[in-house]
Amino acid sequence: MEYNNYMKVEFESKSHNEAFGRVVVAAFVAQLDPTIEEITDIKTAVSEAVTNAIIHVYENKIGLITIVVVIKGKEIEIDVSDNGKGIENVAKAMEPLYTSKPELERSGIGFTVMETFMDVVKVYSKVGEGTRIRLSKRIEKFDSEVREVK
């Protein structure tokens, strides 16, 4: 039978919460028995998405960031959403080394990291309404029944 699960968490866009966001997602997906490398990939990608919202979307204001994680079989779908200013040009924002804030020592590789460490990255954004980043990854779970036989 296919295993499904869901969780949702909402927190303020404070930089303290970057660690909270990635750790809470890692704890939830741990039930799929991922490898350490898969967990690190997911934590890093989530950290990039949450940091983007804190720095670029809300800037010096405090807003809310929502993370929804859906598990469908071996597939994990992570949505990181904000109700901020939105991205005018998504393709430009996703270009490697592009940063709107070079003065903050941003490396401009946030989206490249997400794309490298996850299978699929999709960005839905509307100016004045907000942004949702969808990060998907397939976990090559070691079948629990096979393990019991061994």
């Binding site: 690190t40 890093t44 990039e48 940091t51 903050l104």
Partner: peptide, 13 residues
């Protein structure tokens, strides 16, 4: 124990 692109930004700067 953990580093993301912000850490890369720090080292490159």
């Amino acid at each position: 124990r953990f580093i993301d692109s912000s850490g890369i930004g720090l080292i490159l700067a």
